[in-house]
Simulated assay, not measured.
Amino acid sequence: MTEGNFVDYVKMHVSSGNGGKGSVHLHREKFITKGGPDGGDGGRGGHVILRGNSNLWTLLHLKFKRHIRAGHGGHGSKSRSSGEDGQDMYADVPLGTVVRDTETDEILFEITEEGEERIVAQGGKGGLGNWNFKTPTNQTPRYAQPGIPLEERFITLELKVLADVGLVGFPNAGKSTLLSVVTSAKPKIADYEFTTLKPNLGIVKYRDFQTFVMADIPGIIEGAAEGKGLGYYFLRHIERNSILLFLIPADAPDINAQYEILLDELRRYNPEMLDKDRMIAISKSDMLDDELKAEMKEELDKVLPIPYQFISSVAQQGLTELKDSLWKMLN
């Protein structure tokens, strides 16, 4: 998936269908000049329904579909014939989609399961025909119910990427390079900060044809929780990952300090993220010789509270061990 095709934020207008009118009709046929009421009910208006689809990874297909309108219910007619129900309109969305009311910013619901269907605009109920109102004292009612009007609203769809492993780190820490080496994904890689502006997903192939999904998320900077850098735009993608893999380059001035800054940004954005399993991968470790690596290991064992591993994506060192560790944590 190219960066330009990853769409994770869409605003749209949805409108259900009006309910059909009930019929006011009195039965008439040869030799029956004064038959009773037989007006049928109106049909239900169509719903607008969002449906979870595990084959979708982006909201791109909805980017230019700004209006979704369901069909109106048909009116009732004679012989107690009910009107036809309006056509329901379905929109498939990727799993992990959060649906908000644009005007109030209230979260309406989240879609997280394959085939899950949620009505976002309810079709109007059809009105009752006059045969429903016949009583012993009112045998020829000449009135019926109108249908209930349609419901319309503006909604915002936000995609929070669903992945097994999310890569967390400062800009230019080597997240995209790692993703390109362990998966078939082809993220943009360059030697400057914020090369990655949108999340990239890749499938990591493990032993015995088993796989897991890894997400490369744009780099965090200090103050991201307050909206600095790309701020909220990408922090929400980290919420849905099972494991957080912190990527810190081996040439960082203080590895533990960088880890604490990243962790603090996550804590300030959403404290629940600290409940996830975490691991540190020290990238670009091909720059270290064995002696320096041993010294760093001795120091890191004292200060780092979670497991860590030395890796090099370019030299492809430690990647098999990293996959083993992640697989063990996932299972």
Rank of each mutant, 00 (worst) to 15 (best):
P199G: 01
I238Y: 00
N18V: 12
E260Y: 06
F64M: 14
A144Q: 02
A91P: 11
H27S: 11
E151S: 09
G231E: 10
H47G: 05
T183P: 13
D101F: 06
G40N: 03
I220D: 05
L62N: 06
Q309S: 10
T104S: 15
I243T: 00
R100V: 05
P37Q: 04
S77D: 10
L266I: 02
I111M: 07
D216Y: 04
G231V: 03
P37E: 03
M1P: 08
G73S: 08
L230W: 06
Y206Q: 05
D301R: 07
I148T: 10
G124W: 04
R268M: 12
L197P: 00
V168W: 00
G129I: 05
L304A: 03
F170L: 10
R69F: 13
I107E: 15
V10M: 06
G43T: 08
L245H: 03
Y308I: 02
P37H: 10
M287A: 14
G45P: 03
G166M: 00
R236Y: 01
L128Y: 05
D191I: 09
D208V: 07
L274F: 12
F109D: 06
G71M: 08
V181L: 07
K284G: 05
P187Q: 12
T58Y: 05
L162H: 12
R80H: 07
D216R: 05
E103T: 08
Y308T: 02
L128A: 09
Q316E: 15
L319H: 03
K186H: 13
A70P: 06
D208P: 02
Q317L: 14
L319Q: 04
N130S: 04
G86S: 02
D275V: 02
I306V: 14
G124S: 07
N132F: 03
D290P: 10
F64V: 14
G166W: 00
N55D: 15
N331F: 13
G42T: 03
P187R: 11
V14R: 00
R207Q: 14
E158I: 12
T195Y: 09
K293N: 02
P149M: 06
T104G: 11
L50Q: 01
L26W: 11
S23M: 11
P307Q: 06
T33P: 13
L326T: 01
V165F: 00
I280T: 09
S184V: 11
I49L: 07
F6W: 10
A250W: 10
K78R: 13
L26K: 11
